[in-house]
Design a binder for these strands. Structure first.
Length: 157
DNA sequence: GCCAACGTTGGC
DNA sequence: GCCAACGTTGGC
């Protein structure tokens, strides 16, 4: 089975790559069916970009690894959680999550503008007009292009 | 803060 | 099943 590649969006004020570096986490709180379905196909060892949205420097800041396949998102059952879903039950939890761990921090943020202007990345869901998917697939080619970007122009920003 | 784009809800 | 209204996302 080949490794698959993904992109995880997060608002760094809520949860940043630095937070993830401290310890692995469950990716709870995803309440979008498309994003959930992607998580349900993830395998241990899959790689992901970590993307900071809604912040001063928007872009990809590093990489993560899937360390546990999908299982029920318990926050959907917790009335006190921000992510509570009254339609979720133990029998039909509706929502799922995976566990992810820190893998690397890029020496600089690969900004959204840079991603938009780099040939070969046009098809990334992230760059499509109006795209709001918080968990999305990345092709092997796109993965390589972005990783290569992270290794050069080290001093810029 | 603005607002375009999106997904969901609910009336019909 | 349609679609208007609404709440949310997220770049700018």
């Amino acid at each position: 089975m080949n490794v698959a590649y993904w992109l995880f969006k997060s608002e760094p004020l809520v949860f940043s790559l630095t937070d993830l570096k401290k310890e692995p986490t469950d990716w709870s709180g995803v309440r979008n069916y498309q994003a959930r379905n992607f998580m349900m196909t993830m395998q241990v060892g899959d790689q992901g970009f970590f993307y900071h949205s809604n912040t001063d420097v928007i872009g990809i800041v590093g990489t993560v690894e899937v360390v546990r396949t999908a299982y029920p998102d318990h926050t959907a059952l917790d009335p006190l959680s921000d992510y509570y879903d009254p339609k979720a039950t133990v029998e039909k939890p509706i929502w799922q999550m995976v566990d992810i761990a820190f893998r690397s921090a890029f020496p600089r943020t690969i900004t959204l503008l840079e991603l938009r202007t780099t040939p070969g990345l046009e098809a990334m869901p992230l760059l499509q007009k109006g795209s709001r998917l918080s968990v999305q697939p990345v092709s092997a080619e796109q993965w390589e292009i972005v990783c290569a970007l992270s290794r050069k122009n080290g001093g810029q920003n």
